[in-house]
């Protein structure tokens, strides 16, 4: 317990951590301030107009769908024959759409929490992932480099305990900070929506989906933190983690993706971590495989494929787990000179 408290104090006293927290607060403040400045509560007239526009848009969708069905059945009047309709009318079936136009879509200069919370949360998760990776890497990297670990081992000559405590404290602190930041962030924008915009449709489904996205985001933050920690431990330096991340992005995500496309490798996106990160966050991700329809002979061919959240989580967990185990194994045997 003493070791955990000491590590927690070391972590919170680190300037880099403090700087990242300030940056988080700054980004948060700027986003909230600009949102607040650019939003107003809609007047009853604006609301009525927006509702009418939304109703009109929904009616148009119904009409297009009906015309599509009529065309398939041969009942379409000649004056609308020229319009494009998909071969499969279900594509324009309003019932099958992910969402239908609502009044808030037609309100300009009005922040609507219900429709903006999801992209706002994506931004926060992206920042916290970056925060976790950098803090995880610098926390152990600087300690290994500055002799802090050696000093600690002279007091507590149990390497696994010391490294495990460091990682545990880091993950715990990152999770607590992420949760606090998330609550403060969403609460602030909820208040902006209530007082200077619109709350939007905040039903049980909305909160369930937002909660699920947030939970997936927190898992990603913890994985990124552990990954940064493991890479810096293996490389004995913060820059080892940063260099690995940069090299991976350039060599694999850019270079290898290009090569895979040139050689027409099937489903190249499944080899990219970014695809799995996206699939995990969104629950699933669909990709189009350029080589999938090469032999279809020009007929209808659906070359898309899906990466599920479960598969993505497995890939991310295995990668992080392997690197973490390797880091602990290397630290256990390493000569600290």
């Amino acid at each position: 317990m003493n070791l955990v408290r000491a590590e927690l104090e070391r972590l919170t006293a680190r300037r880099f951590v403090q700087l990242m927290v300030v940056l988080l607060a700054l980004a948060f403040g700027v986003t909230a301030a600009t949102t607040l400045a650019g939003s107003h509560q809609p007047s009853p007239v604006e609301l009525a107009e927006a509702r009418a526009q939304a109703a009109d848009a929904r009616r148009q969708m119904d009409e297009i769908y009906q015309q599509c069905v009529d065309r398939v059945n041969g009942n379409l009047p000649p004056e609308v024959e020229e319009q494009y309709y998909p071969a499969d009318c279900s594509e324009v079936d309003p019932v099958r759409q992910e969402r239908l136009p609502v009044a808030t879509d037609y309100l300009t200069g009005v922040f609507t929490f219900g429709s903006q919370a999801r992209p706002l949360l994506f931004f926060l998760i992206a920042f916290l992932v970056l925060f976790g990776f950098l803090v995880g890497a610098s926390y152990i990297g600087a300690d290994l480099n500055s002799g802090g670990v050696v000093n600690l081992l002279l007091w507590r000559p149990r390497r696994m305990t010391v490294l495990g405590t460091k990682l545990g404290t880091l993950l715990g602190a990152t999770l607590v900070l992420s949760l606090l930041a998330s609550v403060a962030y969403l609460a602030t924008f909820w208040v902006i929506g209530q007082t200077a915009g619109l709350a939007g449709q905040l039903d049980a489904d909305f909160w369930r989906e937002l909660g699920a996205l947030h939970a997936r985001g927190m898992v990603l933050v913890l994985l990124a933190t552990a990954l940064g920690f493991a890479l810096a431990t293996l490389g004995r330096h913060t820059s080892a983690a940063l260099g690995t991340a940069a090299a991976y992005a350039v060599v694999w995500e850019l270079g290898a993706r290009l090569v895979l496309e040139i050689v027409d490798a099937p489903r190249p996106d499944r080899f990219m971590l970014s695809s799995h990160v996206g699939a995990w966050l969104a629950g699933e991700a669909r990709f189009w495989d350029a080589s999938g329809c090469a032999s279809s002979g020009g007929g209808f061919c659906d070359a898309s494929y899906t990466l599920t959240g479960g598969t993505a989580l497995t890939v991310l967990l295995v990668l992080t787990g392997v690197l973490a185990v390797a880091a602990f194994a290397a630290f256990r045997r390493r000569d600290l000179i």
Binding site: R10, A13, R15, A142, S146, G147, G148, V150, L154
Partner: peptide
Amino acid sequence: AIVESPQFFGNF
């Protein structure tokens, strides 16, 4: 114990 040029965290 101290072992060869002990280093400490500069900001502490």
